[in-house]
C-alpha cells in the first residue's frame, strides 16, 4: 500500500525539477512559460544524441544501469539546453520584452513555441519512442517497497539539485540578485544589478534543471517528443499549488501532485491520474487560495 508513496516521490522529482524552472521564469520574467515542457524534451534529446554518438549505451555503475556515458551526456545536455533557451530568448522573448508586450502576448508566444518545438523535435528525431539503452529495471525491495536503483538515484539527484539551488539563492551574490530582481526589478537596477544578466541566468538555471529532468526521465522511461508536454500540466499544477513562484512551495506542490497521481494509479484509476491530481489541487486551493506557501492575498 505504501508503494504509492515511493512511486509518488519518484514521479514528483521529475515534476519538481521542471516546475522550478517554470517558477523561476514566472518570478523574474513574469510570465508562464508554456514551452517549458519542450525545454525538458530538448534536454532529453540532447542527452540521447550524445549517448548515441558515444555508442556505449548508458553505461553502468554498481547496481545502477547508467554510468559515466549518461552523466557526461547529461552535462552536455545542460550546456546545450541552456544555449538553446538563451538563443530563443534573444530571438523571441527579448524583443517582446523590449516592446513592453503584455503577459498574454508572452504566454501566447510561449504556447506557439511549444507547438513548434514539438514539431521540430519530431522532424529531426522522429516521433517514435527512443531509449538510451536496453535498460531492464531490476527493482530492489526494502520492507516490501519496490524501486529500481536508478529511480532512487533520480530522487537523490533531484534532492542534490534542489539543495544546490537553495544554497545558490541564499548564499551567493548572483542568487541574492535574482531574488531581489524577482521582487522588484526597478529597485534591483537602482542597486546596480544588471537585470538583463539576471534574466540570462534565470533561463540557464531553469533549462539546466529541465535538462536533468529530461535526461533522467528519458533514461528511466523513454524519450518521446511529447514527454515534456505531458508533464506540463502537472508542472503547472505544482506551481499553482505551491503559491506561484515560491521555490519551496513548488517542491511541496510537486510532491502533492506526484503522490495524488500515483495514488490514483494505486486504486485502479490510472487513466484518470491527472484528473485525480487536479481534484486534489482544487481541494487544497479551496482551503488555501494562495497556495501552500504563497503570501496571503
Amino acid at each position: 500500500m505504501m508503494q504509492f508513496v515511493v512511486d509518488g516521490i519518484i514521479n514528483a522529482s521529475l515534476i519538481a525539477l521542471g516546475a522550478i524552472g517554470l517558477s523561476l521564469t514566472y518570478n523574474i520574467l513574469r510570465f508562464a512559460n508554456f514551452a517549458q515542457g519542450e525545454v525538458l524534451a530538448s534536454g532529453a534529446y540532447f542527452a540521447l544524441a550524445v549517448v548515441v554518438l558515444i555508442g556505449a549505451g548508458a553505461g553502468a555503475m554498481g547496481p545502477l544501469a547508467f554510468g559515466w556515458p549518461l552523466l557526461f551526456a547529461m552535462a552536455v545536455s545542460i550546456v546545450a539546453t541552456s544555449l538553446l533557451v538563451l538563443v530563443v530568448d534573444w530571438l523571441l522573448f527579448r524583443p517582446l520584452r523590449e516592446k513592453n508586450a503584455s503577459r498574454i502576448t508572452l504566454i501566447m508566444a510561449a504556447f506557439g513555441l511549444s507547438l513548434m518545438g514539438r514539431n521540430i523535435i519530431t522532424l529531426i528525431a522522429g516521433g517514435d519512442p527512443q531509449y538510451f539503452s536496453f535498460y531492464i529495471p531490476k527493482a530492489i525491495s526494502v520492507f516490501g517497497l519496490k524501486a529500481t536503483p536508478d529511480e532512487v538515484a533520480m530522487v537523490v539527484i533531484t534532492v542534490l539539485a534542489v539543495l544546490a539551488l537553495h544554497l545558490f539563492l541564499t548564499r551567493t551574490t548572483l542568487g541574492k540578485s535574482m531574488r531581489a530582481t524577482a521582487e522588484n526589478p526597478t529597485l534591483a537596477q537602482i542597486n546596480g544589478i544588471d537585470t538583463r544578466s539576471v534574466i540570462r541566468w534565470t533561463w540557464i538555471i531553469g533549462a539546466s534543471l529541465a535538462a536533468i529532468a529530461g535526461t533522467m526521465q528519458g533514461h528511466t522511461i523513454q524519450v518521446r517528443p511529447e514527454m515534456g508536454f505531458e508533464l506540463l500540466l502537472p508542472m503547472f499544477a505544482a506551481l499553482i499549488l505551491g503559491g506561484a513562484g515560491n521555490m519551496y512551495g513548488v517542491i511541496a506542490g510537486a510532491l502533492v501532485i506526484g503522490l495524488s497521481e500515483s495514488l490514483a494509479v494505486g486504486i485502479g484509476l490510472s487513466s484518470y491520474r491527472l484528473s485525480v491530481a487536479f481534484l486534489v489541487m482544487l481541494a487544497v486551493l479551496l482551503v488555501r487560495p494562495q497556495g501552500l506557501f504563497g503570501d496571503k492575498p
Partner: peptide, 8 residues
C-alpha cells in the same frame, strides 16, 4: 546612462 550604472 542605464539605471544599473547610476550607482557606480
Amino acid at each position: 546612462l542605464p539605471t544599473h550604472e547610476m550607482v557606480r
